[in-house]
Design a protein around this nucleic acid. Structure first.
Lengths: 249, 249
DNA sequence: AAACGCGACTGGTCCAACCAGTTGACGAGT
DNA sequence: ACTCGTCAACTGGTTGGACCAGTCGCGTTT
């Protein structure tokens, strides 16, 4: 009845990954990192089960998830083949990769996700202004007003910031934007505290968020997009050319 | 050794869905359509297995996939609870929804995906121009040149068009863009022949694609973005306000 | 009335078998 | 010598049942 809430956040809930989660993670990393090339055949399920020292069903569950992610292609009777994730994998792979770092450079991945967030967020703000539901825009203004009251606490502000953008993306009426936004939010959350101070300027710009909300509520799409751009491109602009050149290999 | 290639595309490979695929599809549709509300508990695995008249393992594979999509949250000992897909689902859900239509209005979904394609494609073109690998841009110009030779066949042009954009998105060096692009391409493919003539104007604009490739090869980001916008926003602009208003409910 | 503890759930894992496609090699037919 | 059908040895797909491991709630106990 006490304890946890009194402790200064020093303890985190112990992660309990199931057996198939481990199998999934190892196979995913092996594929994404290139240890298995595209079109290469994966070992048989029984063989994998023996290698991981787990039951075949656990392997099957992992393979199903890999298949859904677009990393492998299974076919009854035939062998399970590895797919080129750069061609067949969807945005959810980014989230999965963010959770287990070090397969791809994390900082690059975070930068890419922030870049995409800016791209989508700007257009969502425009659309929300142009065809947003009055109720949503009203709630948006309210949320932007309350946003300032959280002033110094970056964690709380980040949370409120996500809520604001969720309203905007939701108000844009574009389901694809909404789903992509979810992927990006979950991805950046998964990497932990990676946006350390790069996003501090963005989060602390209370007036900017208020201006954005006002423009959307007023139905001024162009102005909303401009304000959104001002907020979202800030954490992206400081680029490291070297890391960037690395990424497009 | 002959046959299939001589037939005029009249026959399509027969879809072979496994048992767990059916379970997955039905549960997904039930959740997305709202038959199960968020926070509501799903029936137990044994109960579901009995209801679907399949083995429990099949149900478990389906539940794993639902969990990965962000539709449910399973916890050992506790019941499996339904999540709000508008909050927890990623972009891959769009692909999954496109495959089995009628859960969400397909035309709206396609419009949203095309809209997002435009948003991402424009920025990817700009980035590819600004920091694209010379090799990639050279191949892009080549692909754009060959693009015109496929002139009348829209199917072939669509395929080549995807290849061109894949080069651009790849050249942008942004992994998130690449993965999102994959999701969108797979999604629009899954809905079948939905882009009937809306995209015809875009696909037939050979000169426009050549201009885009030239701008990227020349490193002119702004010009590339402008040409990309001209190509990509064409299929999106004809909006039906009614359907749009429907979507943001 | 509050706390404890047991029992009846839940999902997680395993084993062992069999079904159902695919593949390739081997042998009969041309 | 080549072709073609057949079959056996794979592959993944499915099933049943058993047991482990957490969670939850109801009843008993304090």
């Amino acid at each position: 009845m006490c304890g946890a809430t009194l402790l200064p956040m020093a303890f985190a809930p112990v992660p309990r990954a199931s057996v198939s989660d481990h199998v999934f993670g190892q196979l995913r990393d092996a594929i994404v990192s290139g240890r298995y090339r595209p079109e290469e055949t994966l070992p048989g399920e029984r063989e994998l089960a023996a290698a991981f020292a787990v039951n075949r069903h656990a392997v099957r569950e992992a393979l199903r998830r890999l298949q859904q992610l677009g990393l492998v292609r299974v076919s009854q009777g035939g062998a399970t083949r590895v797919l080129d994730w750069r061609v067949h994998a969807g945005l959810d792979l980014a989230l999965s990769l963010a959770r287990s770092a070090d397969v791809l450079p994390v900082d690059t991945l975070v930068r890419d996700m922030l870049e995409m967030r800016a791209c989508v967020g700007i257009d969502a703000a425009r659309l929300c202004a142009e065809r947003g539901d009055p109720e949503v825009t009203a709630e948006l203004v309210r949320a932007a007003d309350e946003y300032g009251t959280l002033a110094p606490d970056l964690d709380l502000m980040n949370e409120a910031n996500i809520a604001i953008w969720w309203l905007i993306v939701r108000g844009s009426g574009n389901i694809a934007y909404l789903l992509a936004f979810n992927s990006l939010v979950a991805g950046t959350f998964a990497v932990g505290d990676v946006p350390p101070d790069a996003r501090a300027a963005e989060l602390l710009d209370v007036a900017g968020h208020r201006r954005l909300a006002a423009a959307i509520a007023a139905g001024q799409g162009t102005a909303a997009a401009r304000h959104a751009r001002a907020l979202l491109t800030a954490p992206v602009t400081p680029t490291t050319p070297a890391a960037r050149r690395e990424a497009r290999a």
